[in-house]
């Protein structure tokens, strides 16, 4: 599996699971200029992110460049237990996408 960009802290808290995650991503806005060439740096950002637990989507986000570099999200869902897996899928504006796996602790 390719090196992931998503760091996840998923903690089982009784009936619920709290998820905190950060995607290592530049979220380039497409508005900055290269200081040496003066050319605009093209936009490069995460567009979609979803988290699946036990075959069910528990969280999804559509986003654009007003989301900070290294996007951070936290949420809590009903269900989940220690040792179970979360599947985190993401997609860039370039079309690049991947799915990563994290364990609930």
């Amino acid at each position: 599996m390719a090196e992931g960009i998503i760091k996840v802290k998923a903690k089982s808290m009784g009936e619920k699971t709290q998820v905190k995650m950060m995607a290592k991503h530049i979220m380039e806005t497409g508005q900055r200029k290269d200081k040496t060439t003066g050319e605009t740096i093209p936009a490069l950002y995460l567009q979609e992110l979803s988290v699946v637990h036990a075959g069910k989507v528990v969280f999804a986000a559509n986003m654009s460049t007003p989301v900070s570099k290294n996007p951070y999200f936290s949420f809590t869902f009903l269900g989940g237990a220690e040792g179970e897996e979360l599947l985190i899928s993401w997609k860039e504006n370039t079309g690049k996408s991947a799915t990563e796996v994290a364990k609930i602790r």
């Binding site: 989507v57 528990v58 999804a60 654009s64 996007p71 999200f73």
Partner: peptide, 22 residues
């Protein structure tokens, strides 16, 4: 562009989210 992010919350997920924006 004013729209930063849209969170889609299925039943069972709390209406309580955090993020960071520009």
């Amino acid at each position: 562009t004013p729209l930063a992010v849209e969170f889609l919350l299925p039943p069972g997920t709390d209406a309580d989210i955090s993020t960071r924006i520009r």
